[in-house]
Amino acid sequence: MDISGQDLIRACSAIGAGLAVIAGIGPGIGQGIAAGHGASAVGRNPGARGQIMSTMLLGQAVAETTGLYGLVVALLLLFVHPLG
């Protein structure tokens, strides 16, 4: 089986895409911390449930961004083939 330069670039792009989505670890930890603190805040002050919930979701959505950058890089590597 012959492996041309094109095939090698495709294969390495796929590996790179897999490495790029490791970026999902960071937001996962961050969102978990936010959710844990949100839960303990509700436990301390159940009256403010709605406000805590919306603040937590806003913060989590912002924290999600870095993971999504990894996803964008992976999708670019897989489907746009920027390296040829």
Binding site: A61, V62, E64, T65, L68, Y69, L71, V72, L75
Partner: peptide, 16 residues
């Protein structure tokens, strides 16, 4: 850039 990429990547990930 971060504003646009955040919205784009979220909706794109759902679509994909």
């Amino acid at each position: 850039i971060s504003l646009s990429l955040r919205l784009f990547a979220n909706v794109l990930s759902g679509t994909v």
